[in-house]
Simulated scan of single mutants.
Amino acid sequence: MPDKVMYKLYTMCMVQDGTKVLLMNRPDSKGFPGYIAPGGKVDYPESIVNGAIREVHEETGLIIHDINYKGLVEFCEPNQGLRYMVFNYLATSFEGTILEHPPEGELLWVEIEEACKLPMQDWFKQRFPLFFEQGTFEISSVWDEASNETLEKTVRNYV
C-alpha cells in the first residue's frame, strides 16, 4: 500500500427534460468516447455540487436547477494510491440554450428509453438507469491497472 493517497474528484450530471436527457457524443480525442452525461473535474476549493453546476454550464450552456444527488462511483488503484471519485447528480430543470459549438462533443436530447442503444462506454451504460431510480447508489471498485482486473466491487442502493 502506498504511503500517500491521491484523491481525484469528478462530477457527472444527467440533465432531464420530461422523457428526454441531454447527452454528449465525446470524440476519441477527449477520452471516454461515445455518449455520456456532462461532468468533469471539481476545482479546488469549490463544492462538489457547484462543480457539477459549473461543468454542465461549461459543456452545454445550460444553467441547471433542481439538482439532486444520485450517488457515488469510485475506483481505487492500490498500487498507485489513487482514489477516483465521481459524484452523480440529476437536474430536472434548467434555463438557457444549448451551445452551438460545445467543447466536449455534440449535444443531443435523447429519449430515456432509447439512450442505452447509443454507442457509449459500458460503465456509463450500467450506471445510466440508476439516475432514474428512487434513492441513491454507491459503486466502489478496487482495480489493478497493470492487469486491468477488478479485484473487488461493492454495489449498494439506498432508498
Rank of each mutant, 00 (worst) to 15 (best):
W123A: 10
E133S: 09
D28N: 01
F137L: 05
E46R: 09
P119T: 13
L90Y: 03
R83G: 00
H65T: 14
G51H: 05
F132V: 03
I98R: 03
E58H: 09
N88Q: 04
S93A: 11
Y44I: 14
N79K: 15
M120A: 10
E59R: 08
Y44F: 14
K41Y: 05
G51M: 08
V142E: 12
W109C: 11
A37N: 02
K117R: 10
E111Y: 13
V86N: 10
K20D: 11
T92F: 00
G135C: 06
S47D: 12
E106F: 09
T97K: 15
F75M: 10
L72A: 05
P45Q: 02
E106I: 10
L107W: 01
H65E: 15
D66W: 01
G18V: 00
S141T: 11
I36D: 01
I48V: 15
G135E: 02
Y35I: 04
Q126R: 11
R83E: 03
K125C: 11
P38H: 02
I36Y: 01
S141N: 05
T19S: 10
N68V: 12
E77C: 06
V49F: 00
I64A: 04
P103V: 10
Q16I: 06
F32Y: 07
A37I: 02
R127C: 05
Y89N: 08
F128T: 04
P129F: 01
N50K: 14
N50H: 09
G61Y: 00
F131E: 04
H101C: 05
I112S: 04
F32S: 04
E59S: 06
G96T: 02
L90E: 02
G34A: 05
F75S: 14
Q134G: 13
N68P: 00
W123N: 08
T19Q: 09
S29F: 03
T92N: 08
D122V: 09
E104D: 07
L62Q: 05
T97W: 00
H57K: 15
W109E: 07
